[in-house]
Design a protein around this nucleic acid. Structure first.
Length: 331
RNA sequence: GGCCACGUAGCCAAGUGGUAAGGCAGAGGUCUGCAAAACCUUUAUCACCAGUUCGAUUCUGGUCGUGGCCU
């Protein structure tokens, strides 16, 4: 019953704080592999807009020296990349580029895949690092949310519920799960509908199912702490860079490949506002301005989510992160 | 110098003789199957001075400021 839980290091933080770069270095230091926790980088072809910089997972330069001096602990050759005379190391990553943009994806699927990926990494005797900024996805893994039941018939039930008005949904919720009804955001249709869905698919009330979970891992949760103004600045300059790198082209290409406007709108941020621009709904200047504001808001929302987790150890540099992980692994 | 218009929160902006819509930005928050999503909360005494009035941000006069036109 009391079996030893695998250790999992989590690195989270709002957008534009350099999570990937930090995680890559740490993965190299501790013989680790990265499991991405990013709800948009799972999609193929969505690269520039999601900041999916795969080069960030490669450690180049002084690696050979670091390996010889024992500072890098990679033990297999599979991650060693030799290009001409230069050797670099690819830190293995998971859950990036795994599905096509038209394919629906959600937390439940993510959780399943992430658990599998973590198990795989642990099986290899390496350290799994869960790295990303999607709070819900991270919590689904580290708090072990229960999505197992109720997969059957979800589509039908959802279609049925989609047709109901919000007051009707609220009425139904009040009947089946008054406890949730009391605390739920009653103006948020999506949430209300989901609470009803949970009951209709599983027969279990949301208020009950919420309480049934135990973490699967021994955790170290590191949060990257950055002043918000700096994040805003970085967001703004990063946006200009992304446009120069062909972000608009990327979105045109997605369209050509059959991704609907509706889907692009759903993806939010870059995909939403560039689409609106391409459709002629807003001007180029409006796109830039609105996008900057929206990404600022997004960063704030991420922070709000993370703030309420007291488990997070906030830090802002590599050395501290390294020290924390070292201590964690010794325990 | 003369004439006209305007002066409402960081920005845009509505409005009324009885103590001021809304939007944006800002701040705070919610979060268990779309989460880069969806949703919630919050921000003014109306340029200044004097007068009319029971009461003025709204009317009158002046001051300052801004924009435009004219000589």
């Amino acid at each position: 019953m009391n079996k030893i839980k695998p250790k999992l290091v989590v690195i989270l933080g709002p957008t534009a704080t350099g999570k990937t770069k930090l995680a890559t270095k740490l993965a190299a230091d501790f013989n680790g592999e990265i499991i991405s926790a990013d709800s948009r980088q799972v999609f193929k072809g969505m690269d520039i807009g999601t900041g999916k910089d795969l080069k960030d997972y490669v450690l180049a330069g002084q690696v050979e020296k670091r390996v010889k001096s024992g500072k890098l602990s990679f033990k297999t050759d599979s991650i060693k990349v030799t290009k001409g005379s230069k050797t670099s190391y690819q830190v293995p990553y998971h859950l990036i580029d795994i599905i096509r943009p038209m394919t629906p994806f959600n937390v439940a699927k993510y959780q399943k895949l992430a658990k599998m990926a973590i198990a795989e990494v642990v099986g290899k005797g390496r350290l799994p690092l869960l790295v990303g900024g999607t709070g819900l996805y991270i919590d689904a893994v580290i708090k072990n949310y229960d999505f197992a039941a109720g997969t059957t018939g979800l589509k039908e039930i959802r279609e049925k519920l989609n047709k109901l008005s919000l007051p009707k949904l609220l009425g139904r919720l009040k009947k089946i799960d008054p406890e949730t009804f009391k605390v739920i955001d009653q103006k948020n249709r999506r949430r209300v509908q989901r609470a009803v869905e949970i009951f209709e698919t599983t027969g279990i009330k949301k208020s009950v199912s919420d309480k049934m979970h135990q973490p699967d891992y021994e955790l170290l949760v590191l949060g990257i702490d950055f002043p918000l103004e700096k994040i805003y600045q970085k967001i703004d300059s990063r946006l200009e860079t992304r446009i120069q790198e062909g972000m608009i082209k990327e979105i045109k290409k997605l369209r050509r490949e059959g991704v609907s406007w509706k889907r692009l709108e759903e993806f939010g941020l870059e995909y939403r506002y560039v689409s609106r621009y391409l459709r002629g709904l807003i001007s180029y200047e409006e796109m830039l301005e609105q996008l900057k504001n929206e990404i600022h808001h997004f960063a704030k929302r991420q922070l709000t989510w993370f703030k309420r987790n007291p488990e997070i150890v906030w830090l802002n540099n590599y050395a501290t992160a390294k020290k924390k992980i070292k201590e964690f692994l010794k325990k």
